[in-house]
Design a protein around this nucleic acid. Structure first.
Length: 276
DNA sequence: CTTGCCCCCTGCACGC
DNA sequence: TGCGTGCAGGGGGCAA
């Protein structure tokens, strides 16, 4: 599923196709994804023009002219957005369409239906809806600092991997990039967050920024379900250093053999030699 | 308050 | 071929 780099890639790809376009009709073919779809609220978008497309955490936001509404889309584990002509034949699990005023439509496919589609209210353009209150800092913005990560670690016994995946601490770090980031920083996924010294926390902040930035530049990672809006795949999967490499030689130190360990229910990968 | 577990759902790879 | 099992990128709710 889309982690931050994938959602950023999607937002960037969609923007030129959506901004200035009017949504003519919203069509949903399932009653619910992660939550029930509010059909009446979705219908309020009909006739409105998209003024902005952006990302906050792993949410995609579409802003509209002439109303104080935003469309929130979360892709969950298996969500994918495509642009296609209105007459394009329907494939499996394509649950929601937004028909545009130029003969195209934005189509959401989500086999596992862990995604979210919601119309939310805002007070002024550029505002974030209350639904996104409580999210932590964006990892690529200056607000995400050594001291804020240190504060989140202080006194915590839970594994550092679990902590950096907590969207209240920092947003956008999913299961793949959590392993990648910790590998780059030379930190074991399972060590208690509170045991990290300031220098290692600083290293971790740099690693988070570096890995996510590189992944965005590569257009995201493709494992199974993610592909760019135009159908092309992201290239970051080639750059993955540890994720899904159990049993292989470590690409960083060339000495350790990558191990897989389940942490809080999620697969984690690390090198026992260069991650401590 | 903090933390880990379970669940939502479908598809796929694997072993027998 | 056919079936069962385990696993998959997210995140929210709940109970210890």
């Amino acid at each position: 599923m889309p982690e931050l780099p994938e959602v950023e890639t999607v937002a960037t790809a969609l923007r030129p196709h959506l901004v200035g376009r009017r949504v003519m009709r919203v069509c949903a073919r399932v009653e619910r994804l992660r939550e029930p779809l509010d059909m009446q609220a979705l219908a309020r978008l009909e006739g409105e023009a998209v003024t902005a497309v952006y990302r906050r955490a792993k949410y995609l936001l579409l802003e509209f002219a002439g109303c104080r509404l935003v469309l929130l889309i979360h892709l969950g584990m298996s969500g994918r957005l495509r642009l296609a002509p209105v007459c394009h034949p329907l494939a499996g699990h394509e649950h929601v369409d937004w028909e545009l005023d130029n003969g195209n439509l934005l189509r959401l496919r989500d086999p596992r239906r862990f995604g979210l589609v919601k119309v939310a209210e805002i007070v002024a353009p550029g505002d974030l809806p209350a639904e996104l209150d409580g999210l932590g800092p964006e990892p690529l913005e200056p607000e995400f600092t050594d001291s804020c990560l240190a504060a989140a670690c202080r006194g915590r016994r839970r594994p550092i991997k679990n902590l950096i995946m907590d969207s209240r601490v920092v947003v956008g770090v999913g299961n793949i990039y959590a392993s990648e980031v910790l590998h780059r920083a030379g930190i074991r996924p399972g060590i208690p967050a509170g045991d990290l010294r300031p220098a290692r926390i600083a290293r971790l902040v740099v690693a988070i920024r570096t890995v996510l930035t590189a992944a965005i530049a590569a257009g995201g990672t493709t494992i199974n379900d993610f592909a760019g809006v135009d159908g092309r795949e992201g290239y970051f999967s080639r750059e993955l250093q540890v994720y899904a490499r159990a049993g292989e030689r470590c690409l960083r130190c060339r000495r350790g053999c990558i191990r897989r360990e389940v942490l809080v229910g999620r697969a984690s990968y690390y090198c026992p030699v260069c991650q401590r």
